[in-house]
Structure formats: structure tokens, C-alpha cells
Design a protein around this nucleic acid. Sequence first.
DNA 1: GGCGTGATTTGTATCGATAAAAAACTGTAT
DNA 2: ATACAGTTTTTTATCGATACAAATCACGCC
Lengths: 337, 337
Amino acid sequence: MVTIQDVAKAAGVSPMTVSHVINDHPHVKNETRERVLRAIAELDYRVNVAARNLRTGRTGTIGLAVAEIDRPYYGQLAAAIITAAERRGLKVAIEQTGASREGELDALALSRNRLYDGLILSTVGLGPADTELLKVDHPVVILGERIFDGPVDHVAMPNVEGARAATAHLIERGCRRVVLIDGGVRGDEVDVSSLRYTGYREALDAAGLAFDPALVAPIDAFTMESGAAAARRVADSGLDFDGIFCVTDTVAIGALRGLADRGVAVPGRVKVIGFDNIAEGAYSVPSLSTIDPDHTLMADTAVDLLARRLTEKGKKNRQVAQEFISRFSVVARESTG
Amino acid sequence: MVTIQDVAKAAGVSPMTVSHVINDHPHVKNETRERVLRAIAELDYRVNVAARNLRTGRTGTIGLAVAEIDRPYYGQLAAAIITAAERRGLKVAIEQTGASREGELDALALSRNRLYDGLILSTVGLGPADTELLKVDHPVVILGERIFDGPVDHVAMPNVEGARAATAHLIERGCRRVVLIDGGVRGDEVDVSSLRYTGYREALDAAGLAFDPALVAPIDAFTMESGAAAARRVADSGLDFDGIFCVTDTVAIGALRGLADRGVAVPGRVKVIGFDNIAEGAYSVPSLSTIDPDHTLMADTAVDLLARRLTEKGKKNRQVAQEFISRFSVVARESTG
DNA sequence: GGCGTGATTTGTATCGATAAAAAACTGTAT
DNA sequence: ATACAGTTTTTTATCGATACAAATCACGCC
């Protein structure tokens, strides 16, 4: 295994000089630099990342903890984050939390093990009660709602506003009885379900439509399967409805399928809108109207916040926690045509 | 930062003893072990992974290089691999190659940097000409075709057989003019496109149907977009056809969309089948018939092969390269109903 | 020639863990 | 008491890079 010492010997300089060349330090004579670079090329030298990590205390890798990487939303998010991290010379290791509190805590523990320099954590399971657990000594950026009092950076979607716009879009297109397919649990008012529910209510209010609890179809997971099941349930119930707002696109694609199972025409008899703007929505039949929260911007911002923390020297001049809420736009496609 | 020395001092033993406890070495008296464990818990000690890596030369992380993690197929593959790796105490870092030869070579280089103990490489861009480049000193498992002469483990799909079965399925259901939407380049006979093309031809032959080159619609990327475009092109061409076999499910979902754009009824007028069995296919409208190559088995096998190499001592008793071809089954859904 | 200043280069001492080997126990048999 | 085999613990020497500080060099100027 070629080490920095071997290169130094070959180039006739000290190991430190080689290190300087590798790390682009100033004050290396051009001629020396070239000699070193030539030696590096000749010997096919590669830095031993572990040794560097040990000395510098940094790993050059950040963790990304998501519920399940095989859900389109997280896949697309991960792709955007990997791309953004790459630009800053960071690697991304992916943890799957399974959308559970335990999984999210595990991810936190791993970065505490110094496997990662920092962590981008997409929260689903953690709640305000876990604030204490977030007080770790490495940077964490939360992707999701502002569920913690603690001073943690986070990047959120415009959930209430987006949901309001989605519901309003259905109403504009003539819907009067809009079903909401959404995670059921209320009371705790900071999770995605609740926030989007709030937006839904606001839109109804703004349009002067009465809220009918019967129109809320609760699901326990944001999957195509539960979306389909919920849609079938609603269709079978004999309930009068002409629109559906689904808490996520994945759920909405399931719902489209569930409606197809029951022969309900979309958008003829019922209009459907989702939230997230995953790529698949543009190709479903009918194609899916949705709220686009600008993933790329969110991913960039998350990585940016984390990267900024990584370079923060000491605890002295630490910035206060940042909160960033993405913008959104309504994407109208066939399902609300 | 708590080190192993601190723990040793607290427990009144030497650092080595602590190391033995941490690594479950035998020959540690029970009472000592407990004392050490108590000290570890009290001080909230965590191993410094970088230091361990430096000393042992292992990182505990494997790389997974895929084209793009936001494509359902790769997302689902990654999820399966992460799960399989977890069972063996391995972390997975994901590289995106962008389906290019350069990207794949980059991924190889990274593991050569000793960032990873080994690499699972899903090849698209590398060809037989790159065999030499694969002769690296860390384990590599290729997920994809047997495109290399070199002694590299690989896990492949039953491409020819699966494609044959897919095409045969269409023929059984009454199709006589089956379009193939597939990566265009021929000649090089080891890539996915060519192999599935071969299967397609074999099925036609077996059924006594003539091969019509006009029925082959080439695409340059395995995306929904190109699938949709190809389907629209075929529909617009006035060509007589009653079935489509798409090289992947992602392409097929695009094709379903393209056919919908042109008002072509599926399965009424044209039947469609894909390959991969991605989750989305079960929820499309119509739901997508496909070939299921048993991803889980493939992922397990890939990780297993890699893990086995990781524990191989020295170069002496190295096993010969293994080749594993997954099994498959035909999943009949609405699109060929 | 001597001196100062800034640009280059180099020595030294770690970072924290573990491999390998040696040392210190333990208990048993002689 | 002594030797011996096996168990438990410790000593010593790295793994390969870089932080820090010190040394050396180059060049202009008095």
C-alpha cells in the first residue's frame, strides 16, 4: 500500500510537503508541487481516508436518514441531496429509519459514533418529547416539521399553505365535497398530517364550505397500498364526494388505482390532487395534479445548512438555529382537469 | 471526547482489555467484562470508527453504485441491499453513476480510495473492454450482466429467459404483432437491451412468428419519458401492432402513458408487459404485467458474495469468481388481461 | 556582508484503536 | 515446592495522515 511517506521519498521531499500538495495548501513552490504530483501519479498513491479522518476528526461523509429509500419521494429527495453534497465534496450514507421513532434515534446514535460529520434527518416518528435527544455534539438538520423546541436547523415544506392551495384548486375546479385522505392521528399538531389537514380546513373555510368529518379518510401509512384501500373504502361507502386531496402523491397514485378499481372516473366524476410532485405523477393515467414544494431547493438548503455547521469553529460563534420553509407551486394535470 | 484510555482508567484495566470487551474477544473474565461495560455506560463511550479503521484497514461500509437512486428500480434494489447489509453489520454508501461509464469508473476509484471495504456495482456503461480496470484489490460484485472476462463475482437477472417468457405471455394472450421498446444499440451482445432482445426473438421464433424490424422501437434511456415518447411514436406511425414488451417497468409505465395520450386502449387494443416488477406497476392504471426477477434474492446474494470476500484471508485461498443468476416469474396483471 | 521578511519546507507529536507478543495469573499434577 | 498448561491481562509498536511550530531559504536593502 503506497503511503504518503513513499511519495515523499520518491519526490525527495518530506511527507508534510506532500500533505500540503494534496490539501492545496498555499506556499508550495510550483516546481515542488509538480514533482510531488508526478510521484503521486507514478506510484498511484491514494490518501488513506481513515488516517486522515483520525487526525482531522472529520469523515467527509454525512448521513441521510429517511423512512424508506424505495419510496419515490425519498428516492428523489436522496438523489437531490447526494447531488448537492457532491458539490461540496461530501459523501452521503443512507440510513433507513422505517418511519419509526426508534429508527430515527438509531440514526442519531450512528452519527454520534462519529461515522458521519453530520446528519440530515427526515423526521416522521420523533416528537417534541424527544427534543433532549437531539442535543448531540454534531450538526443535525431536520427535514420536516418544526417539532422541536431545541435549537436545531430545519428545512420544512409549506405544508399548511400548500395543502390550502391544493384544496382550493379542487374547489376552483368545481368540487364541493372534498375527501381528505390523510394520516389519522390529530391532537399533536405539528406532524405533516395535521398541518395538511389544517390547510384543508382553511381552504374549506375560505370557500365557505362546511367541514364534514365523514369526508376524512384516515390511513396509517403513506403508501400506495393504503391510498388505494382508502379510496375503495370511500367509494364503497356510498358517500357523496367529488374531489380527493391526498396527503402525498404516493397515496394519491394509490387512490387513483383504488378509484379505478371501483370504476370511478377521474377527473370526470371525482378530481384528485396530491402533494410532493414526485416524478411518477406526471406519467400516471390520469396524470396527477399536485403541489410542488421544490425539492431541489430543499435539498440544497439542507446540505447548505449542514455544510455551514461543519465549518463552524468551536462552540463560541455558533449561529442560532435556522428555519427554512420552501416555496411551492400548484401543478395542474389531468386528474383535476 | 471519551477514549478507550478513559474507559480503561475508570475500570482499572488496560486499554487492551477494554478493546477485548468491545470486540467480544474470548478470555475476558466475567467480572472484568462487567466492570468495563459499566465504565463504558457511565462515560457514554463510543468507539472512534476512524481510529479502528486505520488500525484494522476495514471501514465497515460498502459502496453501492447505481445509475440514479431516484429511479424506482434502483431505489427498491438499494432498499433491499441496505437491509441485507444491515444484517451483516455493514453500512451502505450510495454512489450515483448517472448510468455512464465514467460514473462507474469513479465509483470504482472511490472504493480504491479505501472509503469502502467493497463495492456492489450496478453496471450499465462498462463493457468488456474495461475488464482490466476491474482488477482492483478490494472485492467487487457486479450486479448486471456477465460483461467481463475478469474474475469478478456477479449477480445477474435471467434476462434472456425472462424476456422470452414476457414475449411468450403476450403471444399466449393473442398478440401477433409485438413491439419491442428497448435500448437500441446492437452488436455488443452482453448488455441488458441485447439480452432481452434475444429473448424477444426467441419467443417469436418459438411461436412461429416472423420478426419485423419495424416493430423495434429504440430508446436511449430507460426512463418513463423515453417510454412514453416511444409509445407515442409507434402509435403515430400507423404501424399495425397489438402488444408491447418494454425493456423495463419504468419504460412500460411511460409507454402506458404514451398510449393513453394517443387514446390506445390497454389491454383492449394493445397489451403491455414490462420487466423488473417495481412496486409502482401494481398500482398503475391499468396495472402492469411484468417479469419478477426476485430482487430480494438478488440483493441478498450480492451482499452475501461481497461479505464472503471481505472475510477472505489473504490472496492464497481466494475462491473463484461466482456467477449467480436469479430466478424469475411472470406476473400477469391488467395490462395483458 | 548582515539583516529582515515572507515564502517554503521539515520535525515532532499526536489522533484512538488494535495486532502481536509477552507477562502475569490460575489451578492442577507431580 | 515446582513445573506446566491454559486463561487472563498488559506492553509495545504501529496503522497513515496532519496540526503546530520551528527551521530553512530567497531576496532585497542598508
